[in-house]
């Protein structure tokens, strides 16, 4: 096996995987925050659609959602869609739902006295959220978010089912070309390296926020 060909090929797939990972986070985290806040609104016109979205995204396979966003636009709406964009939409909506639930748990776990104290001191509701609630929520959701991010690194492999060339696809291509299973294990090592970086970043954030309790 010619490693000087195989490794760059696998790295090319890795770049796509990382791109999908980073862009998904960039979209899913704000979406999750927004959805978590909308879900808390008592008006059923707001929170029923939100609950339906959460159920749909968490209740059906991500694989199915990928296929949906790949084939729904061209065959039903007559719009062509780039494979990578379809994957990005499916991943963002799916992970947005999981992040929303993580953030909701985090927000609910902050004692009500915190926002009451802020209100009595004259903070507006946005100031209360951004200065008092959110910083405390971030600390509490770090462990669950770390899990979610590590899963996302691995889930990018699913994008190949709609033809996105990413790391796992690259590994499989190489495996059939070289008639060797080794590229699959190299890809495994790549995922492991990516996730050790993710884990290290979250560990650092956790340490940084350990200056206070509660």
């Amino acid at each position: 096996m010619n490693y000087s060909v195989v490794i760059p090929y696998l790295l090319e797939g890795t770049v796509t995987a990382l791109k999908l990972f980073a862009l998904t986070l960039l979209l899913a985290v704000p979406l999750g925050l927004l959805v978590a806040r909308l879900r808390a609104i008592k008006n059923p016109l707001v929170n029923l659609p939100v609950k339906f979205y959460l159920l749909l995204m968490r209740g059906t396979p991500l694989l199915l959602q990928l296929i949906f966003f790949m084939y729904f636009p061209p065959f039903v709406l007559g719009i062509s869609i780039d494979r990578f964009i379809a994957a990005l939409i499916a991943f963002s909506l799916n992970y947005g739902a999981y992040f929303a639930e993580i953030f909701r748990g985090g927000i609910d776990s902050i004692p009500q006295g915190q926002s009451e104290a802020a209100k009595v001191l004259g903070f507006s509701s946005w100031q209360t959220f951004s200065k008092i609630t959110l910083p405390q929520v971030i600390k509490r959701v770090i462990p669950a978010s770390a899990n979610e991010c590590m899963t996302l690194v691995k889930d990018t492999a699913l994008a190949q089912t709609i033809g996105v060339f990413e790391l796992f696809r690259a590994a499989q291509n190489t495996t059939s070309r070289e008639v060797s299973i080794i590229p699959i294990f190299i890809a495994g090592a790549f995922y492991l390296v990516m996730n050790s970086v993710v884990a290290a970043i979250f560990n650092r954030a956790e340490k940084k926020l350990s200056y206070y309790k509660g």
Binding site: G113, A117, L121, G122, F123, Q127, Q136, Y212, K213
Partner: peptide, 24 residues
């Protein structure tokens, strides 16, 4: 309040300065 409700992520000083600077 009965149970203080200080902001745990702020130092004591910042607990006192945050509202005057943000609100006023």
């Amino acid at each position: 309040f009965q149970n203080f409700n200080l902001f745990p992520h702020f130092s004591i000083l910042r607990n006192l300065t945050e509202a005057p600077s943000v609100v006023l």
